[in-house]
């Protein structure tokens, strides 16, 4: 299944709760303010690196670009464009947009 997180890890516990529930092999897509978790040097970096060992982690490139953090993408996180976002929702039978 695909988990989609759109909240900054510094604003809400959404990312942490998602990571607690996500099962090995699931995919995690970070969008909107959620992409801040995928930036190197942030307090969320260790959690994302840990997540990369059991989940496939993606970040929406246009949201990274818009926020000026494109160069900071954590290694192991795959950038996707909008078409890639659509592909992910098609590949996974269930999606959960965490609010």
């Amino acid at each position: 299944m695909l988990h989609i997180v759109n909240k900054s890890p510094f604003q809400t516990s959404t990312l942490d709760t998602c990571l607690r529930m996500a099962q090995a092999g699931n995919a995690l897509l970070l969008i909107e303010d959620g992409i801040y978790a995928a930036t190197a040097g942030s307090a969320a970096e260790a959690r994302i690196r840990q997540a990369c060992t059991k989940l496939k982690v993606y970040a929406l490139q246009p949201d990274m670009d818009a926020r000026g953090v494109t160069g900071k993408l954590i290694e192991g996180v795959t950038p996707v464009d909008y078409a890639g976002f659509v592909d992910l929702t098609v590949e996974h039978s269930t999606s959960h947009s965490w609010l």
């Binding site: 299944m1 607690r20 529930m21 996500a22 099962q23 699931n26 039978s93 269930t94 999606s95 959960h96 947009s97 965490w98 609010l99």
Partner: peptide, 18 residues
């Protein structure tokens, strides 16, 4: 627990978040 909840989530057709 989180493990059980995650498994249950995976079995759904539709998940709506509030």
């Amino acid at each position: 627990d989180a493990q059980q909840m995650g498994q249950l989530m995976q079995q759904q057709d539709v998940i709506l978040s509030f």
